[in-house]
């Protein structure tokens, strides 16, 4: 499984912060990195705030396997 956008973004953001903290950059480089960092952190936040996903249970049918929404209260029956 390839890295997700999120994983890539959060890695890059970490690297940017480390570079900024080292402080060995020209002002132009620093501001460009900072700008990139802000945009990455926005992307990550957006991904983290995506709509909640469902919990599904697989049901075996004659023609294969189907997904059905799972409710843990049903599971107690």
């Amino acid at each position: 499984m390839a890295e997700t956008t999120f994983e890539k973004s959060i890695k890059e953001l970490d690297e940017i912060v480390k570079k900024l903290e080292l402080g060995e950059l020209s002002l132009d480089e620093m501001l460009a990195l900072f700008e990139r960092g802000i945009s990455l952190s926005k992307t990550c936040n957006k991904l983290l705030n995506e709509a909640e996903k469902k919990v599904n249970i697989l049901i075996k049918k004659d023609d294969g396997v189907q997904k059905q929404q799972f409710s843990s209260s049903e599971g107690e029956l």
């Binding site: 959060i10 900024l20 620093m30």
Partner: peptide, 15 residues
Amino acid sequence: LRQNYRRAYFSVSKT
């Protein structure tokens, strides 16, 4: 993420 933002902002403004 928040901390990273703060750290980036802090180091830039410090510089």
